[in-house]
């Protein structure tokens, strides 16, 4: 039981972090970014290079990863997505193409062999809850970092000028423009931040998993499930959706094996889209 709680908590926090950026990009720029998983992957690989190749300390590696992915995100918005504004499927298809370019580019650059980042935090934390469970410090760190970044993001959204601007653009672009918001600049920053958050998610989980160029695919789907669950326009919905998916998966994982947990995510997706397409808190389709 405690196992499910801890697993669920970790999965939830992780999914929220991954999905947060996707929701931001959708609400601010109306872009459904299928390349979101690739930004996650880039964050993980950036940490790999920083830590394993250049021997930077892990914390610096994470920061570097964020900045790197942020920059790539800015470039993509400014030179790619901005060109295809508005019309129908264009941004979506562009993001699909970008997804292929990034993952294949990574495959070419990084090679086909899985990479590993050395474990950063060693040791195990023993908690005396119930019959006494143990959880590795690594997992605790991941959860703490995820919580930290999620918190920072919400702080930014609610208490900074940029955050207010982004929220204004998300609600009503025309009104925001009249209020003096620099739509282009702030949208670009919003996009970059969204990608950066995905990169952070990749960075913090990197020590715990094997890295490979197509590692972004499954997290991307999970992120979509989270934002569909929570409602596609809603940032707060991401938290709701993330917890629902996280605990659902943890329970399934406990009852059966890993693959069915992933399949559960897909079932949830179909169910939500059929029953309540606007999700828990979202706007109209």
């Amino acid at each position: 039981m405690e196992q499910i709680f801890l697993d669920g908590l970790q999965l939830s926090l992780f999914y929220i972090l991954v999905a947060l950026g996707l929701a931001m990009v959708f609400s601010i720029l109306d872009i459904v970014n299928f390349a979101h998983g690739e930004f996650y992957m880039l964050g993980a690989f950036a940490v790999y290079y920083a830590v394993q190749r250049w021997h930077l300390p892990y914390v610096l590696g994470v920061i570097a990863a964020f900045l790197f992915v942020f920059a790539v995100g800015m470039f993509c918005e400014r030179f790619l997505f901005r060109r295809v504004e508005g019309v129908g499927y264009n941004a979506l298809v562009l993001s699909i193409g970008l997804s292929l370019v990034l993952s294949s580019g990574a495959l070419n650059l990084f090679g086909t062999r899985d990479k590993a980042v050395d474990t950063v935090v060693q040791g195990v934390l023993r908690l005396s809850i119930g019959e006494g469970i143990s959880i590795s410090w690594e997992r605790v760190t991941i959860m703490a970092c995820a919580l930290l970044f999620i918190g920072l993001t919400f702080l930014l959204i609610h208490h900074t000028k940029l955050g207010r601007a982004m929220r204004a653009i998300a609600q009503n672009k025309a009104a925001a423009m009249q209020l003096g918001v620099d739509i282009q600049r702030d949208s670009m920053l919003g996009f970059a931040l969204g990608c950066g958050l995905a990169g952070l998610a990749g960075a913090i989980i990197a020590p715990a998993i094997y890295l490979y160029p197509s590692m972004g695919l499954v997290p991307c789907i999970k992120a979509f499930v989270v934002i569909v669950l929570g409602g596609m326009g809603s940032i707060h919905g991401v938290v709701v959706g993330g917890f629902i998916l996280g605990f659902l998966e943890a329970t399934t994982r406990f009852l059966t094996t890993g693959v069915w947990a992933d399949f559960v995510a897909f079932l949830v997706l179909v169910a939500v889209l059929i029953i309540k397409p606007t999700g828990m808190m979202g706007q109209k389709l």
Binding site: V93, I96, G97, V101, S104, N108
Partner: peptide, 11 residues
């Protein structure tokens, strides 16, 4: 590089 090629062309 095939996906790179396809992705690039799509874009």
């Amino acid at each position: 590089s095939r996906p790179l090629f396809y992705g690039g062309l799509i874009m």
